[in-house]
Design a binder for these strands. Structure first.
Ligand code: NAD
Ligand code: NAD
Lengths: 210, 210
DNA sequence: TTATTATTGTGAAATAAATTACAACTTACA
DNA sequence: TGTAAGTTGTAATTTATTTCACAATAATAA
């Protein structure tokens, strides 16, 4: 029996679904058509029961003899985590990190695309960088609305973080992924993810030193 | 009463300690000497009680009237998450992301330093890039051991991930931070963190679409 | 056919993490 | 002085997530 509501999927499960799909794309390329929970589990450093529980939550059933059908699973995960019409993304701050992310990301997912970048440096705006048009921030609201952008990635200089957040919120984005070292707040109804490499390194350093 | 053992701190608490300290550094620069739990909480989008609970776990006590003494708190967090002698880090793969991380990170933390990079591209090795010497991967073991490197950041091309992991493990690193899109496994006694921006974006896209 | 092995699906239990509720203390000031 | 307001510290509870334990099923081989 699938979850009461798909919207109530645990956050951790959503993250793993994304990662399962990433692996499943690879498996398809290698010519595999079916996969067992223990195979997925080993590749992701999880237990097989964790994998089966996640798939149970999205209402997917495998077969005892063949495991899961990879292409069906990919397609079901897509139904759950992708937006039907696709989700359009902007990069705020086309510096080293912004450029690295943009060139890494472009073309990786059918339903997610980085369609605009913003910067206040004349070396950056009014050009196409890493395949994406970069605009001056005074065009932000206009472009975000015209391009129907729902998610912003913040890679501006730290001191510009709050201004950048304010502009993006005013323009109406509903999700922010913040890579600056300055935490931001968002109002009700907007979603926020923060990531800082220093936190990951300090956590590792703590674990290593124990 | 502090935690039974500081080593048993919840992982989430360790991450937040790193983030508290990041904010506290800023507050010191602004001339603040004391801070209340609700101030830290607001800056980090947490509840004040969550902050107090974390500080309780590390055995730090504030005053009801003045809150916490920022410099003492910074120093205690350092005692807990920093290694006494400092932790030395290597970057595996000095491409766009490796360079962006290195230039961002260098000099940010006294007890964490990126001291070497490795690559197999002649354009990259035997040079200093973003302030860090970049070596050919056939020098990896030698350099890791001589430089006493305990943590590796993987930013190589995806297809080189397993080879890179193998070399780093053989050289004796105890922690790996993997940014490639290929999951890796590590033996008992080695710690692993994985991060992929696509997972963060897909999670945001899922939340936004709900 | 029947036993054996390997797999999925899932209720129940265990573990991890966050929140609630409140006691205790400190200061300001009526 | 005493009381109201604001704060910390923490036990108890609740919520979120993972793991355990095992029933059910399918394929295989004796
Ligand atoms: N750029 C990003 O924002 C981003 C985000 C998430 C993940 N990633 C991942 O991080 C990795 C690096 O991304 P990038 O954009 O910097 O790519 P890149 O191509 O710029 O860099 C890859 C580097 O790895 C080196 N390399 C390749 N094979 C090697 C080998 N066998 N040994 C040593 N070095 C080797 C290359 O010479 C190059 O310098 C990729 O795996 C990518 O999937 C990147
Ligand atoms: N580089 C990394 O690996 C890394 C890792 C974690 C976090 N960060 C953070 O990500 C952010 C970007 O890092 P980076 O290395 O790319 O720095 P960077 O200096 O290369 O890029 C910052 C960009 O922001 C632009 N900018 C500055 N002020 C702006 C404003 N008011 N409006 C619009 N654009 C503005 C700059 O012109 C520049 O292009 C920083 O906040 C940094 O702390 C970087």
């Amino acid at each position: 029996m699938p979850n009461k509501k798909i919207e109530e999927l645990p956050g951790k499960t959503v993250e793993r679904l994304s990662q399962y799909r990433r692996l499943l794309f690879n498996s398809v390329e290698l010519g595999k058509t079916n996969i067992y929970s223990h195979e997925l589990a080993r590749m992701m450093n999880l237990t097989p029961v964790q994998v089966r529980r996640d798939l149970m939550l999205i209402g997917y059933s495998g077969s005892q003899s063949k495991g899961y059908v990879i292409k069906d699973l990919i397609s079901l995960i897509g139904k759950i985590i992708d937006s039907d019409t696709g989700q359009r993304i902007a990069i705020m701050g086309m510096g080293n990190l912004g450029r690295a992310i943009t060139s890494y990301f472009t073309g990786k997912r059918e339903k997610l695309s980085i369609v605009a970048a913003f910067d206040n440096d004349p070396q950056k705006y009014d050009r196409i960088i890493a395949g994406v048009p970069c605009y001056h921030i005074n065009k932000l609201k206009e472009v975000v609305q015209k391009e129907n952008i729902g998610i912003a990635i913040l890679t501006v200089a730290p001191q510009a973080t709050h201004e950048a957040t304010k502009l993006m919120l005013e323009a109406g984005v509903k999700g922010i992924l913040n890579y600056t070292s300055v935490p931001v707040s968002v109002p009700e109804g907007v979603f926020l993810e923060e990531y800082d490499i220093i936190t990951s390194l300090e956590k590792l350093a703590f674990l290593v030193k124990k």
